[in-house]
């Protein structure tokens, strides 16, 4: 009576995913760059030639020096120095660290809140669905930056305040995506099978429905991390986001901005280049993941 045929030996799906990913050279390079930037950001204290927070090590004599200048610290400032006399490379590495940290934190919290709201709305239906999704729709009709701007102006400066503003501006994208995925998954037999067992609704939602909505959420998450990094940079550039004690990439650009016209381009341009590289790399990776997860784009 035993079914004699062995089940297919399956290659682990992640490996298959990586093999296909690798075929797109640009995406592979972007992924490499993203990993490198995250690595550099995490280990910034070990890599950076100077601790930009150590005010004692700074000398105003070294302020606004061009790239390649050897300052009083005894080492060469490859990317020059900023208006406070900080080594710009070190400042960028630390700034990158803050930007990525904020981006991932805001993205993760928005994902958790948005995905839960979307999946619950799709599962429960009725007035709960109408209420949640109308609020989400309303919010999606405003530009995210407007909401983030108003909120951070109201909440004031600080990491927690900034993350709150970013989450509030972005959870709606996750909710929309999760809702869309969950409404189509909700109709599938395995959900009906779980309900027919019967399993508790909470278990059906979080153990069966949510994991199957993961693919589109992963795509949105990568894109949203990039967008919260750029939102944060925008807010910091406008002086709204983080306090001066925690200089992110946006603040570095802002600090250098007054000197742009006086030829000291490097103070603004290099942090800007870093920001663009980071956001572009994440977006390219996100695009490739989306293409691979979207069955309609497959050959």
């Amino acid at each position: 009576m035993t079914d004699i045929s062995p089940p297919q030996k399956a290659t682990p799906p992640l490996l298959l995913f990586w093999r296909e990913f690798r075929r797109n050279r640009v995406a592979a390079v972007a992924l490499g760059l993203t990993v490198l930037l995250v690595f550099v950001a995490v280990f910034a204290p070990l890599i950076a030639p100077q601790d930009p927070y150590d005010l004692g090590a700074l000398s105003l004599m070294d302020a606004r020096r061009p790239p390649g200048f050897t300052g009083s610290g005894g080492y060469t400032h490859i990317l020059g120095t900023d208006p406070q006399g900080r080594d710009l490379l070190s400042a960028i590495l630390y700034g990158l660290r803050i930007s990525i940290e904020i981006g991932i934190m805001a993205g993760a919290i928005a994902l958790a809140i948005g995905a839960t709201l979307g999946v619950v709305a799709a599962y429960l239906g009725g007035w709960v669905e109408s209420l949640i999704m109308r609020i989400v729709d309303l919010q999606l009709s405003f530009p995210a930056i407007l909401l983030a701007l108003v909120l951070s102006a109201l909440l004031g400066q600080g990491k927690a305040q900034l993350v709150t503003a970013l989450v509030a501006a972005q959870y709606a994208y996750f909710a929309r995506t999760a809702y869309g995925a969950a409404t189509s998954e909700r109709r599938k037999d395995y959900i009906e099978a779980a309900l027919a067992t019967p399993l508790h609704a909470r278990r059906v939602v979080f153990k069966h429905l949510l994991p199957n909505c993961a693919p589109p959420l992963i795509v949105v998450a990568t894109v949203q991390i990039a967008s919260s990094i750029s939102l944060e940079a925008t807010l910091s550039f406008l002086g709204l986001g983080l306090p001066v004690t925690e200089p992110s990439l946006g603040m570095l650009i802002s600090n250098g901005f007054p000197y742009m016209m006086s030829g000291r381009y490097w103070i603004s341009v290099y942090p800007g280049v870093m920001l663009i590289l980071l956001i572009m790399a994440i977006n390219i990776v996100g695009d490739q993941i989306r293409d691979q997860l979207n069955p309609r784009l497959r050959r």
């Binding site: 099978a193 994991p211 199957n212």
Partner: peptide, 23 residues
């Protein structure tokens, strides 16, 4: 309107759809 018993169980038509792909 709520199922109260485990005394009835179901086998569905399409075994490709009735098993959670991620479990």
């Amino acid at each position: 309107g709520k199922k109260t018993t485990t005394a009835v169980q179901t086998v569905f038509q399409d075994p490709f759809a009735s098993l959670d792909p991620r479990m």
